[in-house]
Amino acid sequence: MISNNIKIKTQDLNVYYGEKQALFNVNLDIHSKEVTALIGPSGCGKSTFIRCINRMNDVIDICKIDGSIKIDDKEIIDNNVDVVRLRESIGMVFQKPNPFPKSIYDNISYGPSIHGLADNKSDMDKIVENSLKKAALWEEVKDRLDEPGTGLSGGQQQRLCIARAISVNPEVILMDEPCSALDPIATAKIEELIDELKKSYTIVIVTHSMSQAVRVSQRTGFFHLGKIIEVDTTEKIFKNPGNQMTQDYITGRFG
């Protein structure tokens, strides 16, 4: 089911790293409670793009952004935006699982505690349990919550990171190649989880796997040299793309 509600809207988004321009006039609508996959060759700007959505590029001194990104119609490319609040509503999962060197429990409770989401221990216990359940990890770790998160398998660590991301009730989850370090079984578990999570969250996933984009997303955007070349329903992109460049890329013909 394709929704028509636009959660994130970018207009004429340009990003520069010093002299080098990384994104050129990107206009892209991300629909609410859907998975949008971003594909394109390495260095095409996909990761730069998603890092604009939670203003993560702010930490790079030489990075300059102009244009507009609206989330729920509210401009976020604005010095007055509370970036901490913004990141509370936008979770992020990276290519390599990066749990904190803390217990499984603390990995989840860290965010809610700094955002003041729990009044007491029992509230926090509930948040931890719910987040782990939503990330389909609870059954595997419920008896060892005090063990270090780093002791879990790669796939479990990635689900722990997803649980950590959703523990602060975000609205958007950004995933930057979340399965590229995982085996097919761990990948399948994450993909199953993405299917489940899209009912509650808007998800943007960067992936180099065409078949993963087809499996998990409802919309796909193709980036090339910092420009968005084509965005459409995933079915259209992979069955009958409108742009020759998209077709050449997804069929492995790129020169």
């Binding site: 065409m210 078949s211 992109i237 992979f238 069955k239 998209t246 077709q247 997804i250 069929t251 492995g252």
Partner: peptide, 10 residues
């Protein structure tokens, strides 16, 4: 082998 896409799939 190829999991063909787009024109190749068709």
């Amino acid at each position: 082998k190829r999991a063909p896409m787009a024109i190749d799939l068709r």
